[in-house]
Amino acid sequence: MIAKTFLTVLFTVTLFSCTGQNTNTTNYAETTPMHIQRFDKELFALVDTKDTTMQVQLRKQYPQMLDILGKGILNIQTPDDPNFFPKLITFYSEPTLKQLYMEAITQYNDISDIEKKLGEGFNYLHANFPSMQIPAVYMHISGFNQNVLVGDSLLSISIDKYMGKDFPLYQDFFYDYQKQKMQRHNIVPDYLAGWIMSEYPFTGKENVLLDRMIYEGKIKYLLSQALPEITQADLIGFTEQNLNWCKEHEEDIWKAIIERKDLFTPDHMTTSKYFEDAPSTHLANEAPGNVGTWVGWQIVNKYMKETNSTPEALINANAQTILEASKYKP
């Protein structure tokens, strides 16, 4: 089996250098698909053939991807290192990883549907954030490691993390609540979330629940507007049963947060429990994970209804202002 050192948290963004009115006015009929550069296929050709003459072309065509991959996965600072390509080939030649690599690029041979949806998503972002730079987009394989790589004008997804919840190899490594997020329909939201988070990084207090909730809620709101055809459950990685539980117990969840005084208490362990993918058993045995993000999304939805704010103003508003103006009271 693949060494457990390949494993990391399910949604990792590595940086280098529920309901609400949909206000999306993007004309999807006029949207141009987003071209995704297949670094994954080009690199596999080198790994499979071990043809060293291909290294020159790879370095010429994908200098940033090689640099980021080396730093993020191989722990090598530069492709100029004489050990770079030998170590890279050795890493991807591990039998189980190589088989995973082959199955991933086979499953994702045709990505026209992803390119179309990605074009729609970035069209929304460009319309609402005119100064936002649009990146060059790639695909890579990480061996269950870094699934989103972000660099200067570069964005890449590790497609081996999106092989479907029933993919045999996942059964040995991931829980059901993790596998729920490892499906094809999660790729475009994760691309967009990775880029939004890189352009508008979290600036609040990491240990304060309200700050974290509102930031995550902002991201989910923007994704719901950019990708209106994707269900609420899929955007947050819930089953429909998970989503319905949250809707039915929204008042109880909020009441518990307030009564426990968790909203403003700067305690890392308490705050982190609300964003873990594992079930939120500290709230109720039936509660899904990531309840903090779901509540934050509801607050942001309410805020946008109450204020009719723009997406750009939303992303720059602070958490306390959003909570107060939202008049959130489930």
Rank of each mutant, 00 (worst) to 15 (best):
T8A: 10
F11D: 12
F11R: 14
T12R: 10
T14S: 12
L15V: 08
C18H: 12
T19Q: 14
T19K: 13
N27H: 07
M34N: 05
H35Y: 10
L43G: 08
L43E: 04
A45G: 10
T49Q: 11
T52D: 11
Q55P: 09
V56Y: 10
V56F: 09
R59Q: 15
R59V: 11
K60H: 14
Q61Y: 08
Q61D: 15
L69K: 06
L74W: 06
Q77A: 15
D80G: 10
L88T: 01
I89M: 02
I89A: 01
S93N: 04
E94K: 00
P95L: 03
P95Q: 01
L97M: 07
Y101F: 03
I111Q: 02
K117R: 06
K117Y: 03
L118Y: 01
E120L: 05
E120S: 06
G121Q: 00
N123A: 14
A127N: 11
M132T: 01
I134E: 01
P135F: 00
A136H: 07
V137Q: 01
Y138L: 00
Y138R: 00
I141S: 00
F144W: 00
Q146Y: 03
N147L: 04
V150Q: 02
G151M: 00
Y162K: 03
P168G: 04
Q171S: 05
Q171W: 02
D172W: 00
D176F: 01
Y177E: 10
Q178W: 06
Q180D: 06
Q180N: 11
M182I: 01
N186H: 13
V188G: 05
A193E: 09
M197F: 02
Y200K: 06
K205R: 14
L209E: 05
D211R: 09
R212E: 13
A226K: 06
I230W: 04
I230M: 08
D234N: 12
G237W: 08
F238T: 04
F238Y: 15
F238H: 11
T239V: 06
T239L: 06
E240C: 07
Q241E: 15
L243P: 08
N244H: 12
N244V: 13
W245P: 10
K247I: 13
E248S: 12
K255A: 14
K261N: 15
D262R: 10
F264K: 12
P266V: 07
S280Q: 10
T281V: 15
E286Y: 11
A287S: 14
A287K: 10
T293E: 15
V295W: 12
S309V: 13
P311T: 10
P311F: 08
L314A: 04
N318I: 13
A319G: 09
T321W: 09
L323V: 05
S326N: 06
P330N: 05
P330K: 04
